[in-house]
Amino acid sequence: MGTNGDIPTLIVLVLGDSSVGKTSFVHTVCHDQPLSSPPPVTVGCHIEIKLYERRDRHQNPNLFFIEFHDVGGSIQHKNSRSSMFYDEFHGIILVSDLTSRQSYDNLKEWLYEVIRYRSRQKLPTEFTPEVLQNFDIPLLLVHTKFNESNGTSLLNNSKSSNMTNNHSFSSSSLLPNYNRKTTLANFLNCDEIFIDCYSNKRFSIDTPNVAKLNSFFEKMIKKASVEPVEQLPQFDWFASENHYIH
């Protein structure tokens, strides 16, 4: 956990396919207002910072800088982005587009890309539940374009592959039934947010989403205060220089 003056800094990786709305989501969270139009495609990594104040102001420290590393999703940069952006972080936000079934199915591959890079163990080529057994990094799912989806994916006829006989992704709507979580959120045991990044509604007063985001921040703070990410023993993390594109 770094510091900026007297205020600690926590780093969040924001990952997902290109054009799913990562930059728009981060802007909404950090500036408390949506972008007026879709931003250009991110090349490299776009960084935004939010000052987070804990609800319990008696806790010390009660202020944190949350540094969002919005990593470009271009497949052309897959081989280079790992060594440039995955060395230091305290949490991961995985972003999908509700109108694109493929972007949802690809979230597990984004997570596995990080796990493969940060582990010295020989891991399977395909994502399996076993690779998560020792992965203890706070996660949050964000699903964008809620207003455009009408509760279903435009690719709702696509079939997703089973990870095991007992773990598979929903094959129709990306939205959970009866307010339950999506299959992936249950599988990863994390919260998820459904959002329209271009809505005029201020994110700061959207209570359910803000509560989940704050809970995610608190998990990062708790984890970082106990044990730095780069020293987690289960995956035998290795240190290397940090390379960021600002």
Score class of each variant (00 low, 15 high):
2 G>I: 08
8 P>Q: 04
9 T>G: 02
9 T>E: 14
12 V>A: 09
12 V>N: 03
16 G>D: 06
17 D>P: 06
19 S>G: 01
23 T>M: 08
25 F>A: 03
25 F>Y: 15
27 H>G: 02
28 T>W: 01
30 C>D: 07
32 D>K: 15
33 Q>P: 01
36 S>C: 05
36 S>A: 12
36 S>G: 13
37 S>G: 06
38 P>L: 07
40 P>N: 09
42 T>W: 12
49 I>P: 03
50 K>D: 05
51 L>G: 07
54 R>S: 04
56 D>K: 04
56 D>H: 02
57 R>A: 15
57 R>C: 03
58 H>S: 14
58 H>W: 01
60 N>F: 10
63 L>I: 02
63 L>E: 12
65 F>Y: 14
65 F>I: 01
67 E>P: 05
67 E>H: 10
70 D>A: 04
76 Q>E: 14
77 H>E: 07
79 N>W: 05
82 S>Q: 12
90 H>I: 00
90 H>Y: 03
91 G>I: 00
91 G>M: 01
92 I>L: 05
93 I>P: 00
93 I>T: 00
97 D>R: 08
97 D>Y: 09
98 L>A: 02
99 T>R: 03
101 R>Y: 13
104 Y>F: 14
107 L>A: 08
108 K>T: 11
110 W>N: 06
111 L>G: 01
111 L>P: 00
112 Y>V: 00
115 I>P: 10
115 I>N: 07
117 Y>D: 15
117 Y>H: 14
120 R>I: 14
121 Q>S: 11
127 F>Q: 03
128 T>M: 07
131 V>Y: 02
132 L>M: 10
132 L>V: 05
132 L>Y: 01
136 D>N: 13
140 L>W: 02
141 L>W: 06
143 H>V: 08
146 F>G: 01
151 G>K: 10
154 L>Q: 08
156 N>L: 10
163 M>V: 14
166 N>H: 13
169 F>C: 12
171 S>Y: 02
171 S>L: 11
172 S>F: 09
174 L>P: 00
176 P>D: 10
182 T>W: 00
183 T>G: 06
184 L>M: 04
185 A>D: 01
189 N>S: 05
190 C>H: 04
191 D>W: 02
192 E>N: 09
197 C>F: 01
199 S>M: 11
199 S>G: 06
202 R>V: 04
204 S>L: 10
204 S>F: 08
205 I>M: 09
209 N>L: 03
209 N>Y: 02
210 V>W: 10
214 N>M: 09
214 N>C: 14
215 S>K: 15
217 F>P: 00
219 K>S: 15
221 I>C: 04
221 I>S: 00
222 K>G: 05
223 K>P: 02
224 A>V: 03
225 S>Y: 03
225 S>C: 08
226 V>L: 11
227 E>L: 13
227 E>R: 05
228 P>Q: 06
228 P>V: 08
229 V>N: 13
230 E>Q: 12
230 E>D: 14
231 Q>Y: 13
231 Q>E: 11
232 L>S: 08
233 P>M: 07
235 F>L: 13
235 F>C: 08
236 D>G: 13
239 A>T: 14
242 N>E: 12
